[in-house]
């Protein structure tokens, strides 16, 4: 019963408002710790030199890009099954952050690729999958932007999201298959030959920081979306008057 109470926008809005600063604070703390480990504690890699340190950003970003899409699909499925508006709002609030992490993973991959492979872009299976994931995010956001009626935008986006999530493994498999046929095994960013314990810790701390950041940003964005949609209701009017 309690869960249903939090599914109501009027309850969720102030709760999210109280949570956002905490998650933001945690995100800042973990980022500071993670960056410290990545730059000062983790040893220099004997093969890849200092350049490898970009994996502390790249790997968590790549993880997040996949996770967020799956979390969005989870909210979309719940929204479609139980018709809970808050779930659609959560899926929608997560999308820009997911796209941002996907872009970040691509960007850092390119930065890493230049010294390692001698090229900004290599059609590596992981990078290619990330690129297609970015297209999926863009498609989702473009569809929602094109629909004026929020009810339709929610549902249409959720359906596309679910089709996408069914497809992600197939796309990943097909790209990997294509990659092995067309070129030999390439050096992979995530399969560094000697992954020191401290490197793993650095990545984990950065991944937690990314989670905290995602939660903070998604909650803040969800609050805005809710206020926009509920602006006709009494509680939202009261909130707007209070905050103005």
């Amino acid at each position: 019963m309690n869960l249903y109470r939090y599914a109501s926008p009027a309850t969720f809005y102030p709760l999210a408002g109280r949570l956002v600063p905490w998650f933001a604070l945690l995100a800042a703390a973990f980022t500071a710790a993670g960056l410290y480990i990545s730059f000062f504690v983790a040893p220099t890699d004997f093969q890849q030199g200092e350049g490898y340190r970009i994996i502390f950003i790249h790997v968590p970003a790549a993880w997040m890009s996949m996770f967020i899409y799956i979390v969005m699909a989870f909210w979309s499925a719940i929204g479609l099954a139980w018709n809970t508006r808050l779930s659609f709002v959560m899926a929608r609030a997560l999308a820009p952050t997911g796209a941002m992490f996907t872009f970040l993973a691509l960007w850092t991959g390119a930065l890493w690729g230049k010294p390692m492979w001698g090229a900004w872009w290599v059609w590596d299976a992981r990078l290619t999958s990330e690129l297609i994931l970015l297209f999926l995010y863009v498609g989702y956001m473009a569809l929602q932007a094109a629909i004026d009626d929020p009810r339709r935008a929610d549902r249409a986006g959720a359906l596309l999201n679910l089709v996408g999530v069914i497809n992600v493994p197939i796309i990943y498999f097909s790209v990997k298959w294509w990659n092995t046929l067309h070129q030999g095994a390439s050096v992979s960013l995530t399969r560094a030959p000697s992954m020191a314990q401290t490197m793993l810790w650095g990545m984990l701390v950065m991944a937690i920081a990314a989670w905290m950041y995602t939660i903070a940003v998604a909650l803040a964005r969800a609050r805005t979306l809710i206020l926009e949609r509920e602006r006709q209701t009494e509680w939202a009017r009261a909130v707007i008057k209070e905050e103005a």
Binding site: F135, L143, L160, G164, N167, I171, V175
Partner: peptide, 9 residues
């Protein structure tokens, strides 16, 4: 935009 990524496989 929506469908081309799904056509990749």
């Amino acid at each position: 935009l929506l469908i081309l990524p799904l056509y990749v496989p």
